[in-house]
Amino acid sequence: MTRWAMVVDLRRCVGCQTCTAACKLSNGTTVDVQWRKVLDMETGEFPDVRRSFVPVGCMHCEDPPCVEVCPTTATRKRDDGIVTMDYDVCIGCAHCVLACPYQARYKVTKPKYGYGEASQHEVENFDPAKIGVAQKCTFCVDRIDDGRKKGLIPGVDPEATPACVNSCISDALSFGDLDDPDSKVSKLVESSKTFRMHEELGTGPGVYYIWGAGS
């Protein structure tokens, strides 16, 4: 089996938002829609304060609440763990948006452009199917599927790897097959202290956060 997963090394992340920007461009998301973004979190009180930068997006959960609530089956979970969206089926009820405890989903009812009217690149990148429906990070599923057809390995070959991971300048983001013990993500999870966000909710996120060395 294959379980695509992402590993975020919080020790490395600097909050630069390169992944946020790369995702926006790669997926042609409209203004204020960020399938991937990096949070700036502050912990403690002056002078004992920590600041953490936390990339978030769809967690591609093992037991995704969005899939359960979706009345149309537009949202599905594939056998390889990727939670997908079928824009042609979705009715835009936003139930999944509210079911997701990671604020990973967006519903855009009308396109919004950077400067009011659509610029040339926004015209080229515009996908009308995404209007009025739920949208979210797909782990760049097209890149993964197309890449695999070419014999490439997601997480290893950039052409088959999510755009955010490709762009990450601090190597904080890694992607790969968690069921493959030799994959980078498996080795990272194995050799690091990790958590998954809101783990208490039982969603089984497919994004692991490294916070320390050692198992």
């Binding site: 938002q17 390169t18 790369a22 790669s26 690149h121 950039p158 300048i169």
Partner: peptide, 25 residues
Amino acid sequence: ATQISPCHRAGEVHPGGGKACVKAF
């Protein structure tokens, strides 16, 4: 021009692995 992406090939010489920061995007 629709996309900017890292030049992964340049990773062979570039110490940042051929990546570019947010400004490039």
